[in-house]
Design a protein around this nucleic acid. Structure first.
Lengths: 350, 350
DNA sequence: TTGTAAGCGTTATCAG
DNA sequence: CTGATAACGCTTACAA
């Protein structure tokens, strides 16, 4: 229990165990605390001592143990593990990849590590959260996830509360910080564009809406159209943001219709649905986009810009959103939810 | 330093700190070690005691601290953190999402947690690896990543070696376990299909090839074609697996050519490239697939099955590969690299 | 079946 | 600027 040289000096460098700060201290001829200080930017340490330590550390291949560091600093109020859990539940939507790119980049540059968790189904969200807690994450980020509000209760039980952040989705739930695009403003922007372009029979294609933390896009569009045109558009929804499901739904619901019974534009809750809708129009219904039926998406996934689709869609400011996420993590005091404004990217499908 | 009741009994339940096993022990009227036993499946503990503990734990919201657990069991030979680092470097390829789905699912079901790391560029691989070591991961998984062999040296320095696994890519490097499809067998399968279908002027579209850990597909195809047809096909490569880059490359290299100077099939190193190639053929060159130019991909991404592409491609057995990955992680003794056989999915583009 | 002692590798805090 | 003490929350070993 002392800091003396252990009885077997080479024990800690034996195979199967990591080099410790004590090993480095011994090699550098200083104390363990000096080793520690050498590894912190703010430390009060002489340049000579630091260099000696760093040299010894490099020679031995010393890698600090963040588990021990976290444990030891746990009692400090401002203690942080610099680890966040990222919960994800839908891999069919290509936009998830774009989000992951932004998130992983921003978080890593901000010095945050990510525990990636696939919440296998909605019932799994609570267990996943609890599991992440075992690693003492500072925050849990739900990325465009379908979750029921009750999972919050599960979490609120514990002593310390990791921050709970919903990314790319709004939530009114108390204690949840939501970082998302302003769905209502975005949808109004889309609806105005649809109106301005002279479309008269829109069809709204929505995704799953099981829980309160869902997109407000469909409701906003319906309301806007009802108010400005006096009738509510035709609508349909799909159980998952999946292009092929969207394709078959559009195929089945539009085929065999007379031209005047067809919508003139399909407004989609996101690009995953929009791409499927375009495929259905072209390949199943043998019609043209946008001449026969126009299509609008949401997200601006990479394929939307490709030669095949040239999709008119709404782009979320993901870089800004990710930057704000890091701000939220960094903050000591409680932070606010924030909504962002994106922009309509007008291409050729509408 | 004793296990007595602390001087301030409520201290550990104060805001900002987690409930500890001691708190639970006190509430349940047992010792801390009984609490520990209650949480392990194999423990020798009376049903009554276990129930009492679990009840108290649930009441207090006790969540074990895996950092402390890992630290405490570090000296045991079979000690595991049950944490693996997953390094990823390319978010343009939609196949990454499919891989992530399989990997996150298999690992979570096997009880493994994932530290997701975006290696921002190739130079960042080594720092990323070292960073992951700080969390004492049991293994590092490189998922289809571009890495230089020298990064291995960086890692081999330390005392304990986390397993180094390359997923969906072969590597001959000593000490690296590679779990991948047999690129040579797969490519031969594709080449035979191309031959059988009567194509005579294939064009091979390859991705980046900077390091030794790359796909052997192009080389294998070239060799096969040279041997069976006496000449090597035209070829080109792109700096990233990016559909839009593929589209512009095909556009630029084929436009203006006379019909007889055009290839009759474009064989692509993966689907990301193939989808771009199809877009170029249809929208830039105004030709038909497969009548004018056929296309073959690799991976079978979700869009490949969609109505728009109906891409002929080669599917990797990702579920099997992920299952083997878990086996490798679980194993005590050193494990072998393994190659898997996939299957050609013949659709309509070739 | 249960309890005790010792220690994992680090950091907060204070003494020199 | 550097060193020492006492934790952090848990587990391994062993004793009762």
């Amino acid at each position: 229990m002392s800091n003396d040289v252990p009885t077997t000096p080479e024990a800690s460098t034996a195979y199967g165990s990591y080099v410790t700060a004590d090993d480095v201290a011994r090699a550098a001829g200083v104390s363990r605390w000096t080793v520690n200080r050498a590894f912190r930017k703010d430390a009060s340490i002489s340049a000579k001592a630091r260099e000696k330590v760093m040299q010894a550390a490099a020679d031995l291949g010393y890698i600090p143990d963040l588990r021990a560091a976290g444990l030891a600093s746990a009692r400090s109020v401002s203690a942080r593990s610099n680890l966040v859990a990222l919960l994800i539940d839908d891999f069919a939507n290509p936009h998830k990849l774009v989000m992951l790119e932004h998130l992983t980049r921003a978080l890593r540059q901000g010095g945050w590590d990510i525990l990636l968790v696939n919440t296998l189904d909605t019932d799994d969200t609570a267990p996943a959260l609890r599991h992440a807690s075992q690693r003492r994450v500072d925050a849990t980020i739900l990325i465009g996830i379908q979750f029921s509000d009750e999972i919050l209760d599960q979490v609120h039980q514990g002593g310390r509360q990791p921050k709970l952040i919903v990314f790319a989705r709004t939530s009114q739930v108390e204690g949840v910080i939501s970082i998302a695009v302003d769905d209502q403003a975005a949808t109004r922007c889309i609806a105005e564009y649809v109106t301005r372009k002279g479309f008269r029979r829109p069809f709204y294609l929505a995704g799953p809406r099981t829980f309160s933390a869902h997109l407000l896009r469909k409701e906003t569009f319906m309301e806007y159209w009802g108010q400005t045109h006096g009738h509510t558009p035709e609508t349909a929804w799909i159980g998952a943001y999946d292009s092929q499901k969207a394709e078959s739904l559009i195929r089945e619901s539009l085929r065999g219709r007379a031209a005047e019974a067809l919508p003139d534009v399909i407004v989609c809750e996101n690009d995953a649905l929009a791409l499927g809708a375009i495929d259905a129009i072209r390949h199943d219904l043998k019609l043209r986009v946008p001449e026969d039926i126009a299509v609008i998406g949401f997200d601006d996934v990479p394929q939307a810009a490709g030669a095949n689709y040239r999709l008119t869609t709404y782009r979320q400011p993901l870089a800004e959103m990710a930057a704000y996420l890091v701000e939220v993590l960094e903050a000591q005091e409680p932070m606010q939810s924030r909504m962002f404004l994106g922009e309509l990217v007008a291409r050729e499908t509408a």
